[in-house]
Write a protein that binds this DNA or RNA. Sequence first.
DNA 1: AAGCCGGGGCA
DNA 2: TGCCCAGGCTT
Length: 348
Amino acid sequence: MKNIEHDSGFHHIGHKLLDWYGKNARNLPFRNTKDPYKIWICEIVFQQTRITQGLNHYNNFIKRFPDVQTLATAEEDEVLLYWKGLGYYSRAINIHKAAQQIINEYHGVFPSEYEEILQLKGVGKYTAAAISSICFGAKLPAVDGNFYRVLSRIFADDFDVSTSQAFTYFSQLAHLILPENAGDFNQAMMDLGSEICKPKNPLCPECPLREDCLAFSLDRVSEFPVKKKKVKTVDLALKYYFVHRDGRFLIQQRKDDFIWKKLFEFPSEIPEELIPFIKSVKMISHKLTHKNLSIEIFNVEVDSAEVWEDFIGKNEYVITDFEGSHEKSFPKPLENYIQNYHTAYRFL
DNA sequence: AAGCCGGGGCA
DNA sequence: TGCCCAGGCTT
């Protein structure tokens, strides 16, 4: 390992971090509990998601699904509904499957061994280490993006964190400073990485580890972590038809093989039987851009009440209204569109 | 080993 | 606009 002369002598760093955590831990709803169910949910919710962004989702989720049994017996669509707007929707699908795994394979009792936890759908090495250390006392580092950032700065280590070997490499570095209480240590690293050792503009003067930080002493903090791989963005253009009459409209469910897995959306074609009865086809949203994504939504009002009533009685589409749409999970741009349209519709 | 999956916040 | 975030799955 670069910059490491020997493999001992760094454990005081871990203890110093624990002392800081004892006085500066964030007050969060999943702190002060070792319930593996709650820790599991929180770890999944906050994968690639900031605390401020996912906190309401976490609280609502726990309120509706307070235990494994409740989650396992719920409908998948309702689990997705509680994930609405969070992104990475395979997390919701996997969390539901994993709950059923726990019921079927462990009689509803959350497994306590790292290797068992790792077998749960949607649980990888980070999450398994986090749950087993926080809830069951395993002495394992939960290596995530915070570990990459904090450790690369402490040791001024230029190992490329965007490679697939980064996890193994920084796990070894983590063991150099890992104290007995790995559960608190892992949560302390989260708080330090979030509050002090931030990606941009880190608060080094307030850092409890500044005397141990090689990058700080070299005034090279901004050089770490090293990430060579750039994020690739692709353009995606979508076209939807808002086919409606009398406050009801057509939706359908997406597949699970692409973006927005199993979420609901408007049809991308006008149903052939309705084409002769269209009053207006007007473009509503002028390229509602969302990142590299552009969406066009065409307003299609069906002219004949008779044909409409007949159509919604027998076809593959799901028919809903503005109230019913609250029961479905839509991609965020469409969610915003429905809300806005509803507001406008009420004043027509 | 590399690509892909959301959405929000920030400089 | 590009980067980042309590990562994991698929190919």
